[in-house]
């Protein structure tokens, strides 16, 4: 976490990967417990990962990491349950067994469509995120490709991610 906060991509990636499997187990368990389908667990995992990333500056380096992650995951879960109150009502408990049969590989795909979300951003933000975050270009390369200044790229990426995290939560619940 600490190396990730200092801007080390490899550590940040390792952390998010590790947390995603904990989060997946946590959300599946919690969703079943409140009588919801655990099919939405992956959406929650991704929403939480975005929250963890966008709000990583709220982590106090002198405190243990687990409570911070847990509190954010819990906040996302409560927020999700509140938002989707009217949608999928309780699922009978007897079907809950089937969930554990489902293979994990299939479950790591969520209902969130990245290209659809990206298309809702302004062209500048879309280009910036596409080249820096998806294609993995450096900020300078992305700036050259998009014909924008490096600082404009940085700002666009930053704003774009914030908006993406909002879009993810406000997308149609289906």
């Amino acid at each position: 976490m600490l190396a990730g906060l200092d801007g080390d991509d490899t550590s940040h990636k390792a952390l998010l990967t590790k947390l995603s499997s904990y989060l997946r187990a946590y959300f599946k368990d919690q969703l079943v417990r409140v009588g919801r389908s655990s099919a939405d667990a992956e959406d929650l995992v991704q929403e939480t990962l975005i929250s963890l990333h966008v709000r990583r500056h709220t982590y106090d380096r002198s405190e243990p990491l687990a409570p911070w992650v847990y509190t954010i995951a819990r906040y996302r879960l409560i927020d999700y349950l509140r938002r989707s109150k009217s949608v999928s009502l309780s699922v009978p408990v007897e079907f809950a067994d089937g969930i554990f049969v489902e293979s994990d590989a299939a479950a790591v795909d969520s209902g969130i469509d990245l290209s659809k979300l990206l298309s809702q951003l302004t062209p500048k933000m879309r280009v910036a995120i596409q080249s820096v975050k998806v294609d993995g270009l450096s900020v300078n390369e992305a700036a050259k490709r998009a014909g924008m200044s490096p600082s404009a790229i940085k700002v666009s990426v930053h704003r774009g991610l914030k908006i993406l995290s909002l879009l993810v939560r406000e997308r149609e619940q289906s």
């Binding site: 990967t17 992956e42 991704q46 990962l49 990333h53 975050k133």
Partner: peptide, 18 residues
Amino acid sequence: MKTDDLINLLATHTKPVK
């Protein structure tokens, strides 16, 4: 969207946090 893709997206060119 695959969760691994999202993680790649988030953890590419991570900005250091003060």
